[in-house]
């Protein structure tokens, strides 16, 4: 799967409260949640972000609570992929399980120009290309079954497909 989009840059230790504040947890609707994505740390973000954009962050992205609302809000905003140096463990699981592609890339991409630079991401090869300069970064590639989860829209779709086959 190849994704291509504009980047939005965030720093280290972006916690689940920053991604979606607890006061909005009374809904699980991705679009309603997306209207408040990153609201407390970048109030204009819900208006700026567009379908297919790529979120780039530093280390420990998604730390804090285990709420599945955090990746849901990101997915609901149309973000195609999150690239970070590292993710908090349960955020990582939850993102994959709801069908949000995320990649860990050791190299620091947070120096890119937010809202301007574009990346192309090849999930199979774990290759990230900076479109303006052609520079390539390496990330851990997705194994086939994880790609299948993502392409089925999440774990529930993946399991459903497995069950249908049986």
């Amino acid at each position: 799967m190849i994704l291509e989009g504009k980047v939005w840059i965030f720093g280290d230790n972006i916690d689940t409260d920053a991604i979606i504040a607890a006061r909005y947890l009374s809904t699980t609707d991705p679009e309603e949640l997306a209207a408040h994505l990153m609201e407390d740390i970048r109030p204009d973000f819900p208006k700026l972000v567009g379908r297919g954009d790529i979120l780039v962050a530093g280390s420990n992205f998604g730390c804090g609570s285990s709420r599945e609302h955090a990746p849901l809000a990101i997915k609901g905003a149309g973000i195609a992929c999150v690239v970070a140096r590292s993710f908090a463990r349960i955020f990582y699981r939850n993102a994959i399980n709801i069908g949000l592609p995320i990649l860990e890339c050791e190299e620091d991409l947070t120096g890119l120009a937010s809202g301007e630079d574009h990346l192309r991401i090849d999930l199979e090869r774990g290759a990230i290309t900076h479109l303006q300069s052609g520079r390539e970064y390496r990330a851990s590639p997705f194994p086939p079954f994880m790609r299948e989860i993502i392409s089925r829209g999440g774990l529930v779709g993946y399991v459903q497909a497995r069950l249908n086959k049986q």
Binding site: E68, R93, N97, G154, L155, V159
Partner: peptide
């Protein structure tokens, strides 16, 4: 290890879970 509710739903259906 601890997982999310979606993981539990999948495990109840097919008896599998994915891990890094």
């Amino acid at each position: 290890t601890g997982v999310g509710s979606t993981d539990l739903a999948a495990a109840m259906a097919i008896g599998e879970a994915w891990f890094k």
